[in-house]
């Protein structure tokens, strides 16, 4: 992929990924074919900031986990009243990293 396009993508999407993954993403994108750009742009990225809001507002029902695709954990969270409210609070801080981790996994899948 063209370096300019990759850098533009990273500048506008850096908040969706963990900072330590940016170098790996850049390297992978530079090595990928140009026709992968559409697949990369079509990746469904979870907004970490929005996920925190979901986690605070409806996290006790496990909806944040359902949205991230962690259905098993979502059901567990729902059945246990947000893990007796402990897990519910812990997730306010963990959901950002989890969202970025899932974004990274989805991007890697698109680049493969």
């Amino acid at each position: 992929m063209d370096a300019q396009k990759v850098d533009m993508y990273l500048m506008s999407h850096s908040k969706y990924y963990e900072s330590h993954n940016i170098a790996v993403i850049r390297d992978m994108m530079l090595r990928a074919d140009d026709n992968k750009l559409m697949a990369v742009m079509a990746v469904n990225l979870k907004d970490p900031t929005a996920m925190v809001i979901y986690s605070v507002v409806v996290g006790v029902l496990g909806i944040d986990r359902f949205m991230l695709g962690d259905v098993g954990l979502g059901v567990l969270k729902l059945l246990t009243c947000g893990g007796l409210y402990i897990w519910f609070i812990v997730d306010w801080f963990m959901v950002v990293n989890r969202a970025k981790e899932i974004n990274y996994e989805n991007l890697m899948r698109a680049l493969m």
């Binding site: 006790v60 029902l61 729902l78 059945l79 246990t80 009243c81 007796l84 409210y85």
Partner: peptide
Amino acid sequence: TVCFIKNTTGIPCPACGS
């Protein structure tokens, strides 16, 4: 109860009573 939803809204959550 320990349920925040029930205490604030008066409506039980899906897990209330478990």
